[in-house]
Lab assay of single mutants.
Amino acid sequence: NITNLCPFDEVFNATRFASVYAWNRKRISNCVADYSVLYNFAPFFAFKCYGVSPTKLNDLCFTNVYADSFVIRGNEVSQIAPGQTGNIADYNYKLPDDFTGCVIAWNSNKLDSKVGGNYNYLYRLFRKSNLKPFERDISTEIYQAGNKPCNGVAGFNCYFPLRSYGFRPTYGVGHQPYRVVVLSFELLHAPATVCGPKKST
């Protein structure tokens, strides 16, 4: 009989979020998941679920829940969905086509923008091939755009693969920082350890 609540607040209220190319993952297990707390949290810009209804989450049990978190621009949030393409979905964070879970995003301009620009948040701009679902690539190898080998030196046709967002408070909404948490639900042939409040007695 599990009684402790799942530590969703640790994920959602973290002081610093990860850059999207180096997205953070927390495994959540052996706890009671009260999703209504999240669902009623006012400032969400997006709360979209795939393969599961957000209002039914509290009735369900899962083997594991993974909480992935990172920061992207407002106009990139739409790429955090199954079957998407674009710089983020291709080179930074890719969801599987059969994704079961929820994508939760909110504007973090007050936290993550600075006058003069916040350059701490990076994304991958160049990559030889697209990421596989949930693949994480933190390499900083110089990207070779031409035929000539770069030998690890940036220059003509040789690019550092990461780019900084440089968030400023005055940017338009599409270019403002958004914090994103992706909850993915794993249902294995194993005992369920993460259940909603109704199922955990």
Rank of each mutant, 00 (worst) to 15 (best):
R136N: 05
Y165G: 04
K94N: 05
I2N: 15
G172K: 14
T15R: 09
Y50L: 01
A18H: 09
G146M: 06
D9F: 11
A33E: 05
F47E: 02
V77N: 03
L60K: 11
R168M: 11
Q176Y: 01
V71I: 09
F41E: 07
L111W: 13
F44I: 09
A81P: 02
P177W: 05
I72A: 04
D98M: 06
T63Q: 10
S113Y: 04
D9I: 13
L188E: 15
K132V: 08
V182T: 00
H189M: 10
S53V: 09
D59S: 13
T100E: 05
Q79I: 01
P82S: 02
G116E: 14
E10R: 07
W106G: 00
N147A: 13
N58K: 11
V182P: 00
L183K: 00
R127Q: 04
V32P: 03
I2W: 10
E186D: 12
C61T: 10
L125A: 15
V20C: 04
R27T: 12
N118D: 12
Y50P: 00
Y50I: 02
P96A: 06
E76H: 07
Y143L: 11
R124K: 04
D97K: 10
T85Q: 10
E135A: 07
K199P: 13
V11G: 02
S53K: 12
Y171C: 12
Y159D: 12
D68M: 01
A46L: 15
V180Q: 00
N118I: 04
E186M: 02
F44E: 13
V52M: 07
R136Q: 09
F156E: 15
F17Q: 03
T170D: 15
V181S: 00
F99I: 01
T55A: 14
F47G: 04
G174A: 13
I28Y: 15
P54H: 10
F44L: 10
F8P: 03
A33G: 07
K128Y: 08
T193G: 10
P96Q: 01
S78H: 10
A46W: 14
R136V: 05
Q84S: 12
K114C: 09
F45L: 11
A192W: 09
V37A: 14
A46H: 15
G166V: 10
T63M: 07
T193R: 12
S139G: 12
N147H: 13
N109K: 09
E186G: 10
V11C: 03
V180Y: 00
R127A: 06
K198Y: 12
G74M: 06
A190T: 13
R136H: 07
R73A: 14
V11K: 02
W23I: 01
A145R: 11
N13R: 04
Y159S: 14
L183G: 00
S78A: 12
Y39L: 14
T170Q: 13
V77R: 05
N58R: 09
D98C: 05
R27P: 06
L95C: 01
R168L: 10
N40M: 07
I104F: 15
P133T: 04
T201F: 14
D9Q: 13
E10G: 06
N13M: 03
D68Q: 02
S19E: 04
G116C: 05
E135S: 07
H189E: 15
S19R: 01
I72L: 12
V71A: 04
T3I: 06
Y159P: 11
N151E: 12
N120L: 09
N64R: 10
R16L: 08
C49M: 00
R27Y: 08
A22K: 11
G117R: 07
P149V: 11
P43V: 03
S36Q: 10
A192K: 12
D90E: 08
C6Y: 04
C61L: 08
W106S: 00
P161Q: 06
N64Y: 11
S200I: 11
Y119G: 15
R179D: 03
Y165E: 05
Y171A: 15
T140V: 09
N13D: 01
L57Y: 04
I72V: 15
A67L: 13
G86N: 03
N40A: 11
N30W: 04
Y35V: 11
Y171M: 15
P7C: 09
V20T: 04
L60S: 09
P82K: 03
Y165T: 05
N75P: 05
A22N: 13
A154P: 14
V181R: 00
D97F: 06
G166I: 08
R25T: 03
K132E: 11
T55P: 08
K132M: 10
S184T: 15
G116D: 14
G146A: 10
D98H: 09
R127F: 02
C158G: 06
G51H: 09
D112H: 01
K26H: 07
G86P: 02
Y66G: 01
F41D: 07
P191L: 04
G74F: 03
V153P: 09
P82D: 01
S164D: 08
A192V: 13
Y50C: 02
N120I: 07
N58L: 05
N40L: 07
N1P: 10
Y165R: 04
T15A: 08
N109V: 09
C31H: 06
Q79G: 03
G146C: 06
N109Q: 10
N107S: 07
G196W: 08
G174F: 08
N118R: 07
Q84A: 15
C49T: 00
A18R: 06
S108M: 04
V71R: 01
N109E: 10
A192I: 10
Y39I: 09
L38Q: 02
L95G: 00
F45A: 15
P169D: 10
V37W: 12
R179H: 04
D98I: 05
I104A: 05
G152N: 13
S164Y: 08
Y119N: 14
C195T: 11
R25K: 03
F185P: 00
L122F: 13
K114N: 13
V65C: 09
